[in-house]
Design a protein around this nucleic acid. Structure first.
Lengths: 205, 205
DNA sequence: GTCTATAAGAAGATAGAC
DNA sequence: GTCTATCTTCTTATAGAC
């Protein structure tokens, strides 16, 4: 990894732990293994580093949204894909996504940084909301809606179901971000949540 | 309100909007209507102001926890109170608590400040977790457990039910903190959530 | 591209008059 | 208790040699 990229990497780590205002340029430089003035050959200043991080994050989030097939080029085709998923995979999907969000280093650091900085900048607040609330609700809404079968549920109910399915993941994610020692507890209760949810909303609706 | 208290009040507002590091002593003083040096007659420094805010918050949170009858002196008596609640009140309880959390000025500012500062200080992270995750889960667990009747559900299920009931409130609270314009949407979907939850878990279990 | 030296400025805190 | 003036420290950023 080149110096320019390493600066972004170390800065993201520091920003996610202490927040933008509490990180000093010299601190970033030290972790990269250079002196502060050298850093200015790569970026115009501290703000420019932050902006570069946010830009990269936007790209990655967009990429991820595409992988989830939300906001893809062809929503109708996406719906067919959801419908073809075996029901069992739906059960595991939640825990897999949870594990990814929790363990992927880049994702985890971005989420913590957004949590700290979201009130400074409307753009960051929107990014947080899209990625951790609205996109997942759309995604699970599409999955649940298609899995339950057309016409079985009203459109409104799909939104409520998506909220009921996803919100526990969101809550336990915030728990584990603050106290990683509670991950086992989190996955345990989320497993029960998924099973109970499936029992209540099973095909017998 | 005396000057000493007004300092805390204005400081809390600023800390909740910008975070501790981005608020300057002169800024707090200006809002109070004095000059920065005068402020040092009331508090030793910026950190002392923050500490005083946190101390007051802890007191209020403890008070609130008592009102919720969680961690009261007599858990057995509390359980009886829960059991005597008409089922209809359970339905409204959620929306009332949601409205309180959202509209009470002190609560809202504390929550936003904790959100920003939680990763700097383990004590703040714990306060956030207790007040916005663990206490509500205990509270709703006790309510739901008692309402469902002794022996009808296993103890584990009560924890999952509490999570499924409360998590949507938590998620929509974070939404409204970032974008107050979405409050109508939030209360709308939470109403549906409560009705659907009651239908699924109704006494016919 | 990296360094040392240093400028420039911001912000917390104090001194001492009133 | 409040003010003006000032000190001190910390941090960003630049200059210029290598």
């Amino acid at each position: 990894m080149n110096t320019k990229q390493r600066i972004l990497d170390e800065a993201l780590t520091l920003f996610s732990e202490k927040g933008f205002a509490n990180v000093f340029v010299g601190e970033i430089a030290e972790r990269v293994g250079i002196k502060a003035p050298s850093l200015y050959k790569h970026y115009k200043g501290k703000q420019a580093i932050f902006d570069a991080i946010i830009e990269e994050m936007h790209h990655r989030f967009l990429e991820q949204a595409r992988l989830l097939r939300i906001r893809g080029d062809n929503p109708e085709q996406d719906a067919e894909v959801y419908g073809s998923l075996p029901e069992d995979r739906l059960v595991r999907l939640g825990l897999d996504l949870f594990g990814y969000e929790l363990h992927d280093d880049y994702t985890r650091r971005c989420r913590k940084m957004l949590t700290i900085e979201q009130f400074h900048n409307q753009d960051l607040a929107s990014a947080y909301m899209s990625h951790y609330v609205d996109d997942p609700l759309l995604y699970h809404g599409a999955l649940l809606g298609t899995a339950a079968g057309k016409g079985v549920l009203r459109a409104e109910d799909v939104k409520v179901m998506a909220l009921q399915f996803y919100a526990p993941f969101y809550l336990m994610l915030t728990v584990c971000d603050r106290d990683p020692g509670r991950e086992a507890e989190a996955t345990g209760i989320l497993e029960k949540h998924i099973r109970l949810f499936n029992k209540l909303y099973g095909r017998s609706v």
